[in-house]
Simulated scan of single mutants.
Amino acid sequence: MTTRLLPGDPDRLGGYWLAGRLGSCFDAYDSGGRRFVIKMARGRAPSVAPHCVARVVESGPGYVVSEFVQGPSLREAVGRRLCRRPRAARDGVRITASAW
């Protein structure tokens, strides 16, 4: 679910305008109205198998833009037991998030 931008959040990154937050990411749109997700980086991004993440469409200094994939958040998936290995999923997210 998208929530409002926080004070100090940018309203644009690269060629994308930010509509709100999706947890620690931004809900973003390009000039054609296509929806994307932008994650701000806090360090070096880890390497991840391509089939495990949404397609990256662009990156800039300190951010990565990826395709938007409709579906439940990780929290919802774990809560509804949609993940077969919720502990492994949470651990993987923690490892990935620590690099961002």
Rank of each mutant, 00 (worst) to 15 (best):
Y16H: 10
A41S: 13
A49R: 15
A28I: 02
S24A: 13
R21P: 04
R55K: 11
G14Y: 01
Y29I: 00
A28E: 04
R12W: 07
C52T: 07
F36M: 05
C52Q: 14
H51S: 14
V53P: 01
S24F: 07
G15N: 03
P46W: 05
V37H: 02
F36P: 02
V53Y: 01
A41R: 13
R21Q: 02
M40H: 09
F26R: 05
G43W: 07
M40E: 14
I38N: 09
W17Y: 12
M40L: 15
R44Y: 13
I38L: 14
D11F: 03
A28C: 04
R44E: 15
S47V: 15
W17D: 03
G15M: 03
G20Y: 00
P46F: 08
V53H: 09
S47I: 14
C52H: 14
A28L: 00
P7A: 10
V37Y: 07
R44H: 12
A28N: 04
L13C: 09
A54L: 01
G8R: 08
R55C: 08
S24Q: 09
A41Y: 07
A45G: 12
D27Q: 00
A19M: 07
L18N: 09
K39L: 00
G33H: 01
G33A: 02
P46T: 13
A54T: 10
R35S: 02
W17T: 12
G23P: 09
H51R: 15
A28D: 04
P7C: 01
K39A: 10
G14C: 05
C52V: 08
G33K: 08
L22A: 08
R35K: 11
R12N: 05
F36N: 09
P10W: 07
R21A: 10
